[in-house]
Amino acid sequence: MGKIMKMLELPGETVFRETQVILTGKRQALIENYRSILSCTREQIVVLTASGRMVISGKRLEIVNYTKLEMCIRGRIESMILEEGRKK
């Protein structure tokens, strides 16, 4: 699969549906290729990804936009932790 990706110049996050996070300072996070939203409060948002759970903590957090492929979180982001899922 790696040779085909190189030949077609495809990024890994597209081919393997890896989660991609784009941070804009501490105020906004764009998360692409996530699976689902597990919980959402003003202090913590937990997202299920292909590789585990992503926990975003902060203050005044809100999901301002989301689709099946991406979501935008705004607020004061203080930390992001990726908790790996179980290996099969």
Rank of each mutant, 00 (worst) to 15 (best):
L48R: 10
F16Q: 01
F16Y: 11
E13Q: 02
R27K: 14
G12K: 14
K87M: 00
Q20K: 15
E43N: 06
M1H: 14
L61N: 02
G2N: 09
T67Y: 07
C72R: 07
N65S: 13
V21D: 12
I22L: 15
E62V: 06
G52Q: 07
G12R: 11
T14F: 05
I77Y: 04
E32A: 09
L8W: 04
R35G: 08
L8N: 06
L23T: 08
E83V: 12
G58D: 04
E13F: 14
R53G: 04
C40T: 12
I31L: 15
G75Q: 05
E83Q: 14
K59G: 02
L30H: 12
L30D: 14
E9Y: 00
I45N: 10
R60K: 12
Y34D: 09
I63H: 04
S57R: 12
T67I: 01
L48C: 04
E70W: 07
V21S: 13
I45L: 10
E83C: 08
V47D: 07
E83M: 08
S39R: 11
T49F: 04
S57A: 05
T24G: 05
M54D: 08
E43A: 04
C40N: 14
G25I: 09
E70L: 08
E70S: 12
T19A: 12
L69H: 04
I37C: 09
L48Y: 01
T14A: 00
Q28W: 03
M7C: 04
T41E: 09
E13D: 09
S51E: 02
L61E: 05
I73R: 02
M7E: 13
M54E: 12
E18I: 03
I77F: 07
M5P: 00
I45W: 05
L8E: 09
K68H: 03
I63Q: 10
I63W: 09
E9P: 00
S39E: 10
K68N: 06
I4M: 02
L69C: 01
G58T: 05
K6T: 06
E13A: 02
Y34G: 03
G58Y: 04
E70V: 03
R86I: 08
S51V: 02
E18T: 06
I63V: 15
I81L: 14
L30V: 15
E62R: 11
T41L: 02
T14E: 05
L69W: 01
A50Q: 00
M71H: 02
Q20E: 15
E9A: 07
I31T: 11
K26S: 08
R53L: 06
E83G: 02
S51K: 06
R53E: 14
E43K: 05
I81F: 08
I22F: 14
M54Y: 04
